[in-house]
Design a protein around this nucleic acid. Structure first.
Length: 178
DNA sequence: TTAGGGATAGAC
DNA sequence: GTCTATCCCTAA
C-alpha cells in the first residue's frame, strides 16, 4: 500500500527532515504533512476513502461520497453528513493561535480571524479544541468519556502540544461564565 | 452562538 | 466489537 507520508523525491525528504528554513518556507514544509486527496491520516495509519461502495450494498456507512443522505434511528429525517475531513497541522496551529488570542468560547471571532476562508465552522473549531484537550489528557468536563488516544498528537510539534496544554489551563473549557 | 451528547467512518 | 476523530443535532 502506498505510504502517503513518504515524499516523492529525495529533496523532499531532505526538506522534511530539515524543517522549515524560515517563515516563508513554513507553508511548504507543513504541506508535506497534509494528506493527499482521498486519503486520511491518523494514529491508525493512512485511511483511504473507498472509491466504490463495496460494503455499501450491506450498509450505507461505506459510501465514499462527500455527502450522504440517510436517516438515523435518532433522526428520521434525511441527514447530510460530510465524510471525515481530518485537520492539517496548519489548521491546528491556527486554532491554537486563535485560542491564544481570543480564549475559548469565542469561536465565531476565532473563525473570522483565523479561518475566514476555511470550510471550518465555529462548531468545527469548538469540536477540534475539545478533541485536542482530550488528546492532551485534560479532563475538560466531569462527563468526559474514556481516555483519548494520545497518539493522535504524533504529527504535532512538541511545542505546539505544550502550548495547547498551557492554553487549556489558561483558558479552561468550557468558558467561565461571568 | 455555544456546549455537550450522540452518530458515523474507518483502522485495528 | 473497540476505539478515536470528525461531524451533526439540539437545548440553553
Amino acid at each position: 500500500m502506498e505510504d502517503i507520508f513518504q515524499p516523492a523525491h529525495e529533496d523532499d525528504i531532505h526538506h522534511l527532515l530539515q524543517g522549515p528554513q524560515d517563515e516563508a518556507d513554513l507553508d511548504k514544509w507543513l504541506a508535506d504533512f497534509i494528506p493527499k486527496d482521498g486519503c486520511k491520516r491518523g494514529p491508525r495509519g493512512a485511511r483511504k476513502r473507498q472509491t466504490f461502495p463495496s460494503r455499501g450494498a450491506r450498509t450505507r456507512r461505506a459510501f465514499p461520497l462527500q455527502q450522504l443522505c440517510f436517516g438515523t434511528t435518532r433522526d428520521k429525517r434525511c441527514r447530510l453528513r460530510k465524510n471525515n475531513d481530518h485537520w492539517t497541522i496548519k489548521e491546528v496551529t491556527n486554532l491554537v493561535q486563535g485560542v491564544s488570542k481570543h480564549g475559548v468560547g469565542r469561536w465565531t471571532e476565532l473563525k473570522r480571524d483565523f479561518f475566514s476562508t476555511s470550510i471550518r465552522t465555529s462548531v468545527h473549531l469548538k469540536d477540534k479544541w475539545r478533541n485536542l484537550l482530550k488528546a492532551c489528557g485534560i479532563d475538560f468536563t466531569s462527563t468526559a468519556k474514556g481516555n483519548a488516544q494520545k497518539t493522535m498528537l504524533w504529527p504535532l510539534d512538541k511545542r505546539l502540544i505544550e502550548q495547547i496544554t498551557q492554553l487549556a489551563y489558561k483558558h479552561p473549557y468550557p468558558r467561565q461564565k461571568y
